[in-house]
Simulated scan of single mutants.
Amino acid sequence: MSLLESTGRLIASKLKNQTKLIFRQLASIVTYEEVKDVPNKPEICLIDVRRREELKETGRIPASINIPLFFLVDELEDALTLERSNFKLKYGRAKPQKDTKIIFSCRSGKRALEAEKIAKALGYTNLSLYSGSWLDWANNEGL
């Protein structure tokens, strides 16, 4: 291995570790086991921000509600600013309070991070990410 290859790998490894550190600083990370227990904890709100078409293709995590995060039309921001009664009508559950534990998931974790930023900007304070999201769920469930 050349010095250039070795240096490149070292730099890539450091960048990867720094990215993980930044990710952890922005939001609390939850595990598969914690997400699997959400149906037993109705006080937790699990929001899947994938497009509806994705859910039709793959399925969804039990007890999750789907509020898509789009880059052109942001349904998530609109949903989190809805009146409580309208949220309940549209999504079938009570609108989370500002301090309700909300876990965001998507396909792999990237959109969940964007969703966390939006919710934080709207004043929500108890936010977590299922970093592996659907890919981790499907793997653990054998899907």
Rank of each mutant, 00 (worst) to 15 (best):
L3T: 09
L3N: 07
L3Q: 07
L4M: 10
L4Q: 05
I11K: 03
A12T: 09
Q18K: 14
T19W: 01
T19Y: 11
Q25P: 04
Q25H: 07
L26D: 05
I29Y: 07
V30N: 05
V30M: 04
V30G: 04
T31S: 15
E33A: 12
V35I: 10
K36P: 04
P42M: 08
P42N: 11
E43L: 01
D48E: 00
R50K: 02
R51Q: 14
R51K: 09
R52F: 01
K56Y: 04
T58I: 02
G59S: 12
A63E: 08
V73G: 03
E75Q: 15
T81P: 03
L82I: 02
E83K: 15
R84V: 07
S85R: 10
N86F: 03
K88E: 15
G92Q: 10
G92P: 06
P96T: 09
D99C: 04
I103L: 08
S105A: 13
C106I: 05
C106D: 12
R107W: 08
S108T: 13
S108Y: 06
G109W: 01
K110L: 10
R111N: 06
R111I: 02
L113C: 10
E114S: 03
A119L: 08
K120L: 08
L122F: 03
L122R: 04
Y124W: 02
Y124C: 10
S128P: 07
S128T: 07
W134P: 02
W134D: 02
L135S: 07
L135I: 12
D136V: 07
N139S: 14
E141A: 12
L143M: 14
